[in-house]
Amino acid sequence: MQLLDVTDLNTSFFIDNNVMHAVDGVSFSVPKGEIFGLVGESGCGKTMTALSVMRLVQPPGRIVKGQVVFEGKDLLGLSEREMEKVRGDRIGMVFQEPMSALNPVFRVGEQISEAIIIHKNVGKKEAKDRAVELLKQVGFDEPEKRYSQYPHQLSGGQRQRILIGIAISCGPSLVIADEPTTALDVATESQIINLLENLVNDSAMSMIFITHNLNIMRKLGKRIGIMYAGRMLEQNLVDVFFREPLHPYSKGLLSSIYGLAGNQKRLTAIPGSVPKLAELPRGCKFHPRCPYVMPVCREEEPVIKEVGKGQWVRCYLY
């Protein structure tokens, strides 16, 4: 039984009579207690996918079609009222910028209790106790003291812990972490990743981990999805992916970062640049940059198909 089942999700932006497909036919599922890695370069639609799952897409963007089945309910069919009960309670979210995601004029502890008071129908006192407990859980030595500090008194890593505290405050079954470590240093990054991994392991929570950094996914989670130009190009098991990636784009990505192990003189770069959503090529969206391009790739876009257990790829080579 999957916790989250996203099927054929389409989110588009409508600007000046133009339609831009930010998310185009994306399907994936997240089983209970697993981390699913969603990887891609900027503008590939990974954040839009997450926002669509949370139904936080703002106009001129709109979810055009698809299904997002979470704990047996289709989220896209819920009223806004019902959706508010899911957001923050059943699904928590950790954003990239811990600077701007916290309110600078409220104490960080209060920002954690706020979510608990709203969703769990408890009093201030009890919410505070739970918030202090959460602060301890996300690794603060003196939770009571931290409770009454303001965001500017904390470092980037500490702020990110507060955000994680808010995300898990109501005991969600799914946490969406959108580039949670991108703004942080290597050392702090490793602490935050350890923290997230432990939380998932300890509480049978599931997580969608969004990142542009493939190296992070090497040791994290079980399955990975590679996005490009709004599409899912490949889904694979993490350990298989790093040995034998399927899609030419995945191969290119891996060889362009595979620095520390190899001894080659040059990096094998992917030629060209990431296409703009308004000017997508015909056929396969990756074909202008693909070393294996065939005539059919220029004409018609391949569909994503299953090539092995848990392995999906959108490419004519398979």
Partner: peptide, 14 residues
């Protein structure tokens, strides 16, 4: 820069 572009620029430096 994006990951796929980083490699191009690194090669340019080389």
């Amino acid at each position: 820069l994006d990951v796929s572009i980083q490699a191009q620029i690194v090669n340019l430096f080389l």
